[in-house]
C-alpha cells in the first residue's frame, strides 16, 4: 500500500517538533470501508433525528404584532409611541445604521468604531416613520390632519412641552371603552395623535403601514421589529422565557427546548465585568470572540497551545491499541 502519503511535516533542515511534525508511518494498513461507515452513520443519524422529532417536535411561538401588542397592553404601546414622537426612545437614539441623532450612541474601543465608519444604512426617523407618516395614511382624517399640522408647525420647544407633559401623564393612563384615558393636561395636538395611533395599531393597520417597503410585496421588517422591541411588552415576554442577554439568553430557546448551546462562550462574556455594564459591550464581546476564533483556527501555529494535546496524554487512550502494538 502506498496510498496515504504520511508526509513528514518537517522542512528540510528544520528540527523535528512533535507538535508540528510527524514520523513517517511504516506500519500496517487494515481494511476500513469508509462508504459503508458513512451509510451506517446516515441511517443512525436519520433514525435518531426521526426519534427526536417524534418525541419532542419543535417550538413555534406566535410572533408579536403591533396589533397584538397594542391590544394586550395599549398603555405600553402609547408610552412607547410618545417616545418615538419626541425622539427619546432607544431606536431614536441608536446611532448607525439607523440614524445619527445621538453622536454618543456609537460603540467604540478607543478610536476603533466600525459602526461609525459604516454609517447610516437603514435610516429610521422615529417621529415620522412610526407616528406621523402612518397617521397620514388613515382615511377621513380632517381633524387628525389639523393636529398633525399643529404639531409639525410648532416650535421644537413647544413640541417638547407637549410631549414631555404627555409622556408623564400617559404613565398613569388607562384603557377603557375602546380608547386611551389620559389624565387631562396641556398636551396640545399630541393626545389626539397618540390616541389615533393606538386605535390604528389595535386595528392592525399600523402593522402594514410600518413595513419598510411601500410596495405590495415586502420582506424587510426592520421598522416594525424595532418599534415592537422599544416597548416593554416584548422585553417581558423574552424575560419570562429566559431569553434576555443578561440571562445567558442567546443560547436559550423558548420552552424546554435546547437552544444554540454553541453560543455559550459568546453569551458568557456579557455576564462578566467590564462587559456586564459597559455601553460598548457588544463591540467588546465581538472583539473578544473574533480574537478567540482566530486563536482556535491558528492553534497549530501557537507554541504552548499546540502542546496541550501532547501534555494531556489523552492521545494515549485514543491510540492505546497502537501503543500496545509497538510496545
Amino acid at each position: 500500500m502506498t496510498t496515504a502519503d504520511e508526509t513528514n511535516g518537517r522542512r528540510h533542515g528544520r528540527r523535528f517538533n512533535p507538535d508540528r511534525d510527524v514520523a513517517v508511518w511504516n506500519g500496517k494498513y487494515l481494511p476500513y470501508d469508509l462508504v459503508k461507515e458513512f451509510l451506517i452513520a446516515l441511517v443512525v443519524v436519520t433514525l435518531l433525528v426521526v426519534l427526536l422529532a417524534v418525541v419532542f417536535s419543535s417550538p413555534d411561538d406566535h410572533p408579536v404584532t403591533v396589533r397584538s401588542w397594542s391590544t394586550a397592553q395599549p398603555v405600553d404601546f402609547a408610552q412607547t409611541a410618545i417616545t418615538e414622537l419626541d425622539g427619546s426612545s432607544a431606536v431614536a437614539n441608536y446611532g448607525p445604521p439607523y440614524n445619527a441623532t445621538n453622536p454618543g450612541a456609537t460603540q467604540s474601543i478607543g478610536p476603533f468604531s466600525p459602526e461609525r465608519w459604516f454609517g447610516v444604512h437603514h435610516p429610521i426617523d422615529t417621529a415620522n416613520d412610526y407616528v406621523i407618516a402612518p397617521l397620514q395614511t388613515l382615511p377621513d382624517r380632517a381633524a387628525l390632519d389639523a393636529s398633525i399640522n399643529a404639531y409639525t408647525s410648532a416650535s421644537s420647544s413647544q413640541q417638547a412641552n407637549w410631549t414631555t407633559a404627555y409622556e408623564k401623564a400617559v404613565a398613569n393612563a388607562t384603557f377603557a371603552q375602546g380608547g386611551l384615558k389620559v389624565p387631562s393636561g396641556a398636551y396640545g395636538p399630541v393626545a389626539p395623535m397618540i390616541s389615533a395611533l393606538t386605535s390604528m395599531a389595535r386595528s392592525g393597520a399600523l402593522d402594514g403601514a410600518l413595513l419598510s417597503s411601500r410596495q405590495f410585496y415586502g420582506t424587510d421588517y426592520t421598522k416594525p421589529l424595532l418599534f415592537i422591541a422599544d416597548g416593554t411588552y416584548l422585553a417581558n415576554l423574552g424575560q419570562a422565557q429566559h431569553l434576555q442577554g443578561s440571562q445567558w439568553g442567546m443560547m436559550n430557546e423558548t420552552g424546554n427546548y435546547p437552544g444554540q448551546a454553541w453560543l455559550w462562550l459568546y453569551t458568557l462574556w456579557y455576564q462578566v465585568a467590564p462587559m456586564k455594564t459597559s455601553s460598548n459591550a457588544d463591540l467588546q464581546v465581538w472583539a473578544i470572540m473574533m480574537l478567540l476564533t482566530l486563536i482556535l483556527a491558528l492553534v497549530p501555529f501557537i507554541p504552548g497551545l499546540r502542546s496541550i494535546p501532547r501534555w494531556s496524554r489523552i492521545y494515549r487512550l485514543i491510540w492505546r491499541q497502537h501503543y500496545r502494538d509497538i510496545s
Binding site: P59, H242, N252, T254, G255, N256, P258, G259, W264, V272
Partner: peptide, 20 residues
Amino acid sequence: NLTGPGHYIHWGFIQISAAN
C-alpha cells in the same frame, strides 16, 4: 411536550436551561 415554562439552573452567575 417541551413547551411551557422552561426549567433553568442557577449556579452563581451561571444560568443554563436544563435542556442545554
